[in-house]
């Protein structure tokens, strides 16, 4: 009962915060609402026994990506932003499309049958600690995708520098 109440609080707040993010006129307000949303997502991860991911969520999303967004907003002209029209003229079509896709997801997942459970039960993770268990899976079974991820980050760094530098 208490866990359902906890989840209900998180669900209501997170939906409200996402609506605030996409409707605010001032982009700075959107970024700050998104910061609160990311902290709530980290709380939900803690609720799902993924404490390492909760820390990564706070450090990486709230600490790095949102600061990047704030830096870019500082370079733009906020004064024009606040007076300009927010939504495209055909916004009811977008909302209708979203609602139809929500119905589609609801009808496809309402008949969900849970598969067989794996070997990482809560007791097994507790005995080994979550970070260690996750690291073992990441560095043995998913070593090659991990290397590719580092390559993606390298390409992103090079690409960002090339795109943002002055023409010379």
């Amino acid at each position: 009962m208490l866990s359902k109440l906890f989840f209900g609080y998180f669900a209501v707040i997170m939906v409200a915060l996402s609506l605030l993010v996409i409707t605010r006129r001032n982009p700075v307000h959107s970024v700050l609402w998104m910061l609160v949303l990311f902290f709530h997502i980290a709380g939900l991860y803690l609720f799902l026994n993924a404490e390492f991911l909760a820390a990564v969520q706070v450090i990486l999303y709230a600490g790095a990506i949102l600061v990047l967004f704030l830096f870019v907003i500082m370079m733009l002209n906020i004064k024009v932003e606040i007076t300009a029209e927010r939504f495209i003229g055909e916004w009811p079509i977008g909302v209708a499309l979203g609602l139809s896709i929500l119905m589609l997801i609801y009808f496809t997942t309402s008949k969900l049958i849970q598969g067989p459970a794996g070997q990482f039960s809560i007791e097994a993770i507790k005995a080994e600690t979550h970070t260690k268990a996750l690291g073992k899976v990441l560095y043995t079974e998913y070593l090659f995708p991990f290397e590719i991820a580092s390559l993606i980050l390298l390409i992103a760094i090079v690409g960002a520098i090339v795109l943002a530098k002055k023409r010379g």
Partner: peptide
């Protein structure tokens, strides 16, 4: 899954209806 779907759809609608590239 329901919560995830609702937030996904809100993000999708935001991508479609907003004019600002940052948002």
């Amino acid at each position: 899954i329901g919560l995830s779907a609702v937030i996904f759809v809100i993000g999708m609608v935001g991508f479609i209806v907003r004019k600002n590239i940052l948002i």
